[in-house]
Design a protein around this nucleic acid. Structure first.
Lengths: 344, 344
DNA sequence: TTGTAGGCGTTATCAC
DNA sequence: GTGATAACGCCTACAA
């Protein structure tokens, strides 16, 4: 009947057309090597002609292997997460694994809903950023029996595996560097509501370093919602004097607002780093090519993806001893001093 | 046995514990309203206690609805695609649909492999950028019986639905604008190998507009691989005189290289737009907050996501008449003239 | 090398 | 309202 939706070909159809049983088709397609060359050739021809595409869901139901790896990111609009996902994908597709991606929008509530939804697909592993998790999220993860990899920030009580670094330690280190350069009235720029982000950890690192050096950490500028944008930084830069009059350096939670601050300050004729120094976080491309180039905390997002991919591959491989696997992987981070800060 | 991997709870287990049949559990979980309040309450308690999570793959096998929408993007490292995916996700998750994401890395070969892989998951719709497709990709898509939505560029021969605009027309229009401002020796900056990108369409638009105005379109600078980065633009900017000595304006295939060119020119003391004008494409945030701000072609990536999401939702809805659906959706685009270009 | 029987975990259908 | 039975499309296990 025209207009009627035609049924998609199944393995049975292929089998019939090739004059064999379904099993033989199944074998031929997976290339067990248990099918004679002749039969296989014939089958593959039929498959090609009919345009048969196997139904992986049915297959997975049988094998109990979904072929999925669930991956969460805070946002897709961020080079770091993009690079991480790209690298992770690259590693995993070698093993025939597919990524099931979700973005939390920096909300632990969304994260919970996503985790629940993704678990329904029976992923073989789940990789997600650690910005704290809700109790239910943790419960869901634990009882799911799916290997968990927490990313970016090393959690105090890891659920399973971790790949990341301590944002607090790293921010502490950069703050120290800034203090060594001679900055004293350093401000920290971050989001209004950063509790569920690693921005909060960076903020703590800043505060601790300042206090450790006997300096005041009260110059805390909070603006906008995560993730901070160039625009947010620009706004703050435009009104900088209304926040604190005596700022000699601004350490921003990310390079995006750092670039915004820089643009705004330059427009007002404030010299950078002459009057005010600027530091960012993340080594975005714009930080390197702005004028002056922006001092930043540099880490390799792709590395996180590769390490995670390697880890998951081993985790899933049937012949690897899970107990021998390294549980916690630390990613290297460095301070990248550029023109936007200088010795005073 | 300790160490033994415990089996995950199934619906059968829940049924047993609640003293009902599987069907009743199934009904209670999907809330058909056909289960008595008492029974449902009891079942949900058991579900909660056992931490039962339904296996959607098994469910899909039965209902013949995967709950997946396959979505392809050229790259994940691009704000536009990120925004698009974010908007699309937002629309689709309202209907309980999950996105299955793949990135082509601007390769039609990868695209083909991805399409084949994704079709195995029996997506209910597939949305992918149009940069040309391989023959096999087209064949696969057509015979899959999955509704196809081609994005970003309106293809000459659409497979199914389209959401996008003509990159050629849009680049033509911006080039006209630049010519009207008085620029004559306009160069176009794009990637070396842009055949499978919409950059090629933009290039054509530029050429046609130049020739239509009786100007020469020979100042074609090709550098780097898609997607062009700030760095690529920076390199070209640094060596601009070695490409063509008489350039009075550079139209870049994207804002990223435009920003790079701008930075490089400023470093050399070339005044923008005094000596050389610069235009980009895409209205990236950096173009608005650079100094001078960069003239660009502005389009709303989120809009593409929303429109596509709306379209797919209707497409999938069982009670909507597919024949009444609008097949081709055009996204609005505008020229955004800023400080990096001026009348001469 | 190939085939048969049965099951993976869910839902559609029809009976009670 | 609830339950029994039979799919869904593939693969495992075993038999030939």
């Amino acid at each position: 009947m025209p207009g009627e939706k035609q049924q998609l070909a199944t393995m049975q159809d292929v089998a019939q057309a090739a004059g064999v049983s379904r099993m033989t088709v199944s074998r031929a397609l997976r290339d067990d090597g248990l099918v004679s060359d002749n039969t296989r050739k014939r089958i593959l021809e039929v498959v090609e002609k009919m345009g048969y595409v196997p139904d992986q869901m049915a297959g997975s139901l049988s094998t109990k292997r979904s072929g999925f790896v669930a991956t969460l990111v805070p946002s897709i609009n961020n080079v770091h997460y993009g690079k991480m996902v790209q690298a992770l994908t690259e590693m995993l597709e070698r093993t025939g694994l597919q990524i099931l991606l979700g973005h939390t929008d920096y909300s632990s509530q969304r994260e919970e809903a996503l985790v629940e939804g993704l678990l329904k697909r029976r992923p073989e592993a789940i990789a997600l950023p650690y910005d704290g998790h809700s109790k239910r999220t943790i419960k869901l993860l634990k009882q799911s029996q799916v290997p968990v990899v927490q990313l970016w920030e090393t959690p105090p009580k890891p659920i399973g595996y971790t790949v990341g670094f301590s944002n607090e330690a790293v921010a502490y280190s950069m703050t120290e560097k800034l203090i060594q350069l001679g900055y004293k009235n350093i401000a920290f720029l971050c989001e209004t509501n950063d509790e569920w982000t690693r921005g909060a950890a960076r903020r703590m690192g800043f505060r601790n370093a300042m206090e450790h050096a006997g300096l005041s950490a009260h110059r805390m500028i909070r603006f906008g919602t995560p993730p901070m944008s160039i625009k947010d930084g620009y706004f703050v830069g435009k009104n900088i004097k209304q926040y604190y009059e005596d700022i000699d350096c601004i350490f921003c939670v990310s390079d995006a607002p750092a670039f915004g601050v820089l643009t705004a300050l330059k427009e007002q004729g404030v010299s950078v780093p002459g009057e005010i120094g600027i530091a960012g976080f993340g080594d975005f491309e714009v930080a390197r090519f702005s004028n002056p180039s922006i001092t930043t905390v540099k880490f390799d997002a792709e590395q996180i993806g590769y390490v995670t991919g390697e880890l998951i591959t081993q985790l899933i491989s049937p012949d690897s001893d899970t107990r021998k696997l390294k549980k916690h992987h630390v990613i290297e981070v460095s301070n990248c001093m550029r023109e936007s800060t200088c010795a005073r």
